[in-house]
Design a protein around this nucleic acid. Structure first.
Lengths: 407, 407
DNA sequence: CTATTTACTTTAGGTACTAAAATAAATATC
DNA sequence: GATATTTATTTTAGTACCTAAAGTAAATAG
């Protein structure tokens, strides 16, 4: 039984090593060999190259003193300063900017309030250029290069062409974004749907490591979704993310922000919940089309404390969500559906109705074994995912770039 | 700008050559080189091996006489007798058996009437063993070996474990099938959903060659679906095919064969159409829960000729189908949705309502650029797909098997 | 202080690719 | 009809990369 031939190339193996180091922190060569199924001779060769390119550093084998016999392991780790990436999250009235280093750690973050809906495509681009330039100048003295930028945008984007097709945070449409930023900063620019970024972070968590097919639903002002198939975000024909929020609950139901009727979003998003509540309850005033976190929390509290009207509103939202998820189960049959986003605050009040809607909709054979779970929300999650994706996308480039410099 | 390293292995290249030959028929070495992006030296080496293993034959360079200057091409082609595969399609009350050769051509087909619902898992297995043995004995004297079997089953199957989870054609559930057949015939056994087989055939057609993401909807007694992502059938967590037929149109709508309410299938499948019609119209008698092709054609004719009741029934079916497809567009955003199956006979009567339901459901940005087309139905299509899939699955094995014999 | 253990590196050998040179087999030209 | 040209295929030479096995390094156990 001979070996099934080579199957791998140097680039693949090198990327595998880099990714292992990024996931695990300092690792010894032997362990890299075992973790990636390549011979230790190859690891020696690869790490020698990376060392020469200053992409990794050796740890002086001092600290982890006694752990048995034999020559102690020499740990190698990524050089954080070998490169850095920037992730910018664009949401309604807020721009978030996070810098990550080559090792995948967050180095810096900042938040800006901005009237995003008032910006033209050119305005936005100028703004992004300013912010990125500023952050590069201030924060990144010791670093070797800006390797990549990830733009995480709510709505429909075309990753391939780098075009923002439609976003609830922006009033313009079909605007190319990646190309000009790439030219300005001489690095690759990733344009991603925000839900894809989050799905990426979550999929990397050990608790969900066994889920090859993962659906992440983001509840919030709108409702987004991302599907990971074999761990890779699924982008449809247009490169746009899955639009779960606009799949249907009731063909002629409630009015949705998209202009149509009966979308899941028209029942279970923040604006839909608040709209339904505003008609029936006395609530803190404010912009009811864009309810604030405080307003939403007040409403959630009402429902959780047993107010029957609020409870009824969340039940209906849960049913809509349940029917939507039933369709996702019938069509995708994923290993896991994770529900997150700022809207998870109200998930407790929707959960029961959601589960009973799913059970009503699907018999056991079709319901399958999909787990449905919620997951605490962290406002930085999107950017962490964006940084991970940007690094993954630029590793090969970084390799090339530093190889040139060395040689 | 050095080469980006090898990236390929002998096995990959050899499989690529075999597949090119299967798709194109006789091809010259130069063209194999161009079509697969490998050097002609490598093609020479690979074809020498295949020739030695008797997997390909050289065409005496006679027939295509004058086509310009230069040394004439020596065409090589697959040896059809190098191996053969059997595909068995299991549907309600019918078993279809088709034999394909190594070149992908159908060599033999036969149909049996069988009361599939009356069979136990053991009965079915015995029956399949008999039929396969018989066909091997009769049809396949000159052939080298049975390389693979594909079982194409309506319903939910787990390809990975080779288990039939649930099929409308069978009264038993959760029965392993692949393993025992594999043991009996010493070849790999593929268990596939019938819609996946069809999607595979359709995706191979040149008209749809540019569709990386393809959704095929099969209308018939039930409603099935298959999703190809980057040309590969998507199997969910359980390996079960996408169950479009049981995604929802109306949460508390019509009763479906699955036991729940409001499924698309409960409106647009043969049994649903006939059920609705039987309540309101005088129709040829017979088993109205399993309407025959004649019964369905009579009903379709009524609708197409303008009978208002029949028309209303098909309109409602079209709306259900449209809402279902709108959800598919929102969630998958494929390049193309193809509608086929015996039920396409009635597609003309549903089409208008379907399109207007889709337009009502989704705004242009979400509707995307997905083409929606129907496709004439051919009862042998499933098995042709099964044969293609079985061959693809067993090429590597065949290579190994004949290599052993040669050596 | 030596044997043992474990980590890492070097060496030797193999697979499989490509570019370029050589060969083969036709047609075009004069 | 001999030679040049063109195109297809094969052979040759060289490269990249991998692995197994042998060699070296650096610790602990006794």
């Amino acid at each position: 039984m001979a070996l099934p031939s080579t199957e791998t190339s140097r680039l693949d193996n090198t990327l595998a090593v880099i990714r292992t180091l990024r996931d695990h922190g300092p690792v010894a060569r032997t362990d890299l060999s075992k973790l990636n199924g390549i011979s230790s001779a190859t690891v020696t060769s690869i790490s020698a190259e990376l060392l020469q390119q200053d992409l990794i550093t050796q740890q002086p084998p001092e600290t982890p003193r006694p752990y048995g016999r034999g020559r102690p392991k020499t740990l190698i780790q990524l050089n954080p300063q070998a490169a850095y990436v920037v992730c910018i999250k664009l949401s309604i009235n807020e721009i978030q900017l996070v810098v990550g280093d080559f090792a995948g750690q967050v180095r810096h973050r900042e938040y800006y309030a901005a009237s995003t809906l008032a910006l033209s495509a050119d305005d936005l681009e100028a703004l992004l250029e300013d912010k990125i330039s500023a952050v590069c100048a201030q924060q990144l003295k010791g670093f070797q290069r800006l390797a990549g930028i990830c733009l995480a945008v709510q709505g429909v984007v075309s990753s391939q062409s780098g075009t923002i097709i439609w976003s609830p945070a922006l009033s313009f449409r079909n605007a190319p974004m990646s190309a000009r930023l790439a030219e300005r900063f001489h690095c690759s620019v990733l344009l991603e749907n925000d839900a894809n970024c989050i799905a990426n972070v979550l999929a990397a968590r050990s608790a969900y490591a066994d889920c090859a097919n993962l659906v992440v639903i983001m509840l919030g002002y709108g409702i987004g979704m991302s599907v990971l198939i074999n761990g890779v975000p699924y982008l449809g024909a247009n490169g746009s993310a899955a639009e779960f929020g606009h799949s249907k609950y009731q063909p002629d139901g409630a009015r949705c922000a998209c202009g149509r009727r009966g979308c899941i979003e028209a029942y279970a998003s923040d604006y839909a919940l608040y709209r339904a509540a505003a008609e029936q309850l006395a609530l803190p005033s404010g912009d009811s089309a864009h309810p604030s976190e405080q307003q939403m929390q007040a409403l959630t509290q009402l429902a959780l404390k047993g107010d029957p009207t609020a409870q009824r509103i969340y039940d209906e939202a849960g049913r809509a969500l349940g029917v939507g998820i039933a369709n996702v189960l019938a069509l995708f049959n994923p290993d896991l559906v994770l529900i997150t986003g700022s809207g998870v605050r109200g998930f407790g009040a929707m959960q029961a109705a959601m589960h009973s809607a799913i059970d009503d909709a699907l018999v056991a054979e079709l319901r399958g074994t999909t787990r449905i779970e919620s997951c605490a929300w962290d406002r930085d999650m999107t950017c962490m995912g964006g940084i991970a994706m940007a690094l993954n996308a630029t590793d090969a480039e970084t390799l090339q770039a530093t190889a040139q410099r060395v040689q």
